[in-house]
Design a protein around this nucleic acid. Structure first.
Length: 458
RNA sequence: GGCGCCAUAGCCAAGCGGUAAGGCAGAGGUCUGCAAAAUCUCCAUCACCAGUUCGAUUCUGGUUGGCGCCUCCA
């Protein structure tokens, strides 16, 4: 298996630290609002990676944090007239609901920054003792000039950054690239006691402290969006390796961003879609399928038109799945089907093995559908249908799709469907067509097959 | 100014040295009460120029056109 490592900017053979075990950490959300389509990408990408690693036999320990204290949290809590804690509770719940709807498996560890203040303080003390941190009036800062390896992830040099026009000027800091480890208390803000006075942790330090606490001082994979490479992940490396003098992470993986109408999503442009916005128009499985259709490192353009295309593609998969379920029987499958299934599996794995090529893997699924349908059209072999179905289920489960039950029908739909069966028996085509249209308007599709009428969700 | 990415059919998208997976949309055939589903057939020389090579969409250089990061951000 190969993984593209941002640290070396190259495709590398994936070797774990412990045999058959993968420890991975993905930066989670700041829980001050509903997540948007962009936030959904790392969720889907790294959940798929986790599923694939498990499929390949690894024991995966997956940690994802919640940032439940920072400027955005404080501002939003004030705006809404609630405490930071209440705000966090509300949006952690919303996040977990969305993750579930996206068929994302729960992380093994879901640490919150505010539950780890002690670990964070301990780490800052070590950095201070090693001369990598210094105290100012408004907090404690990491001394980037004192840490010679600063910039190794992003490939940035401190000199280059100084020439940039947009580096914030701060009188208290020794260098513009220095970042806060601890922020001194301001009136009305939540705070915790520390050797540097009351205050709260800076943003970057929580990920270092919590990831190492749950996964070890050196772990296998750390993921997040490309925008986090600098400064967040760069800073995590500096803090962590500065503290332990050991390599922090072996493989850094970054997913590309999502654009809307070819523009970066932003509130000022108003091209912002939250997950609840999307769920109004499409089942979130469609969003997952849509994202799997593009390599995770590429930028993707989001639009509802593309969602419709994806919905159609997903439907093709579901149609095959339901058809095979109806046909499946125990028995020994034909050599032709065995061969078709093996081919699909091989190509699925060889695609996924190279830096999680989910788009290619999806292609393997569609090829399985075509070749199996072709065989079933003539053979009508129940054992073949079962083999094809089992394979489809196995592979689609790795991608986290085809999990919805498309057969559940509301009573009113069922009733109309029943009437239509009678109408057809009576050869009353006009009534039969009318009923089909009505069922259609309710969001269900009616098909007449050789074994009778089938009704399913659109 | 610094760092980096991308350019494949109407749309989306894999592939990345040996003459282009897959999906959506479209056209035609089979099947069907009609449809739907399924299936078969058809639908691209990979932005442009130059080079390396027996051979390039795939490597190198350049041109043009998009985009991202450098500030909170997935």
């Amino acid at each position: 298996m190969k993984i593209y490592n941002t640290l070396t900017n190259s495709l590398e053979e994936f070797n774990t630290i412990k045999e058959n075990e993968v420890n991975m950490y993905v930066c989670g959300p700041t829980v001050y609002s509903y997540i948007h389509v962009g936030n959904a990408r790392p969720l889907i990408v790294f959940d798929t990676l986790r599923r694939y690693l498990e499929y390949r036999g690894y024991d995966v320990n997956f940690a994802q944090n919640f940032t439940d204290i920072d400027d955005k949290m404080i501002n939003r809590a004030n705006e809404e007239g609630v405490t930071v804690k209440e705000l966090a509770a509300k949006f952690i719940k919303a996040y977990e609901d969305d993750a579930k709807a996206l068929n994302v498996l729960p992380a093994d560890f879901k640490p919150r920054a505010t539950d780890h203040i002690g670990d964070i303080i301990k780490m800052i003390k070590t950095l201070e003792a090693k001369g990598l941190a210094y105290k100012t009036e408004d907090g404690v800062y990491f001394d980037t000039l004192a840490y010679e390896k600063y910039g190794k992830l992003s490939g940035r040099k401190l000199e280059d950054m100084k020439s940039g026009a947009r580096v914030a000027v701060d009188e208290n800091k020794k260098a513009p690239s220095d970042f806060a480890l601890w922020k001194s208390e301001k009136p009305g803000e939540p705070s915790w006691g520390s050797p540097w006075g009351k205050g709260r942790p800076g943003w970057h330090i929580e990920c270092s402290a919590m990831s190492m606490k749950y996964l070890g001082e050196t772990f296998d994979i750390h993921g997040g969006g490309t925008d986090l490479i600098f400064p967040h992940h760069e800073n995590e490396i500096a803090q962590s390796e500065g503290t332990t003098d050991k390599p922090f992470v072996n493989y850094w993986m970054h997913n590309g961003h999502i654009n809307v109408n070819n523009e970066k999503m932003s509130k000022s442009l108003g091209n912002f879609f939250t997950i609840p916005d999307i769920a109004e128009k499409f089942d979130l499985e469609v969003l997952r399928f849509f994202m799997l259709g593009v390599h995770y490192r590429s930028q993707v353009n989001f639009s509802f038109e593309l969602m419709e295309q994806s919905n159609q593609g997903l439907n093709r998969l579901y149609t095959a799945k339901l058809r095979w379920e109806d046909m499946a029987q125990d028995g020994s499958p034909s050599d032709e089907m065995k061969e078709a299934v093996q081919k699909a599996k091989d190509s699925f794995i060889s695609d996924m093995d190279v830096d999680l090529n989910t788009a290619g893997a999806l292609g393997a699924l569609f090829e399985l559908v075509r070749s199996a349908n072709f065989l079933l059209d003539t053979s009508n072999n129940g054992a073949d249908a079962k083999l094809a179905l089992d394979t489809l289920n196995e592979l689609s489960d790795v991608l986290g799709i085809l999990y919805r039950d498309m057969r559940v029908l509301p009573d009113d739909v069922k009733e109309l469907a029943q009437k239509r069966v009678q109408a057809r028996a009576d050869k009353n085509w006009a009534l039969s067509d009318e009923l089909r249209d009505r069922i259609n308007e309710m969001g269900y599709i009616v098909e007449d097959t050789s074994d009778g009428q089938k009704v399913k969700k659109k």
